[in-house]
Design a protein around this nucleic acid. Sequence first.
DNA 1: CAGGATGTTCAGTCGATAATGAACTTTATG
DNA 2: CATAAAGTTCATTATCGACTGAACATCCTG
Lengths: 173, 173
Amino acid sequence: MNFMSDADSAGEPTGSSTAAELAYVEKFAVLLEHMGLVRMHGRVLALLLVCEPPEQSAPDICAALQASKGSINPALRTLTAAALVEKVAKPGHRRDYYRIKSDAWTQIMRTRASRFTPVIEAADEGIATLADSPPGRLDRLREMRDFYRWFDQELPQLIERWEQWQTQNRANE
Amino acid sequence: MNFMSDADSAGEPTGSSTAAELAYVEKFAVLLEHMGLVRMHGRVLALLLVCEPPEQSAPDICAALQASKGSINPALRTLTAAALVEKVAKPGHRRDYYRIKSDAWTQIMRTRASRFTPVIEAADEGIATLADSPPGRLDRLREMRDFYRWFDQELPQLIERWEQWQTQNRANE
DNA sequence: CAGGATGTTCAGTCGATAATGAACTTTATG
DNA sequence: CATAAAGTTCATTATCGACTGAACATCCTG
């Protein structure tokens, strides 16, 4: 609650803490944008990462980010569809609340990896088409395909290793 | 040589093979664009992936992609700086030739991983700033930071494993 | 040394994309 | 049942970045 500008006071936010936090959210959003998320998705995710409490309603987010419903709503829809954010119901109050999922970051990684699949397929196609070409030409395609194929296979195992290590450590806590 | 339109013949390319190959390059370029490369970089890299011979001059590439020098030149500069493409000298003919590097794909992976470093740093900063906050709030930041920190550490080892496996298999060939 | 081709740089144009804000639908609550 | 808040959708606007094409610099070749 303390995040939003319910107090429509000055142009400059009143609480110093709030101002600093918003600047931090903005900074983080830029980093997420550089990681491939679209701008508004980065902003929302950054906010949900540091907000208190963790659950925020769409109007809350609109107010905090000073953005319109028309931009927040599709962003929340996409983030939810991508399994980075989840809808949670709160007993008493408004309708929909959103919260960042704890496995959002591994999920982003998995999604990024899935982008390689079409590349592998396209390479296979090219290799088939150019079957009767100079060997060097095919080698370039094969080299690429083999790497991504291998990576596509290894990454899930890597993430799984993280999750196991993670749960073990949480148990020790 | 067979790729470029030295013969400024018809609007539709003459050789059916060439037309198909250019279409393939364009398709591949889209995939690379989806993987995060800017459009023209994707096009150039896709061309260099399948062209014959592997070395192409800047004018060759301009002709093949039907793009201007002003766009190809910076693209080649960036791709070279990113170590995805290398300049090679050819004894007799023109000045600069470009060739895709064999480790381009692992290099892309490494570069992408390096984008996580600022995120880790920003998370550290946030954790320090919010030191006296509800524990759940810090947990969200810590969870993310720990994952990326761990991933940043594991990825180079993963790639190294690939390179070893690669060279071993090449020896067996 | 001169001509021509290659490489480099940059301002202007164009297209794409995301955010807005209003119109509309749905759902709680008094 | 009525009212108001929340959610959804969409046409319009604004902003950003890439591509062009021309002007300039540099380097081979005859």
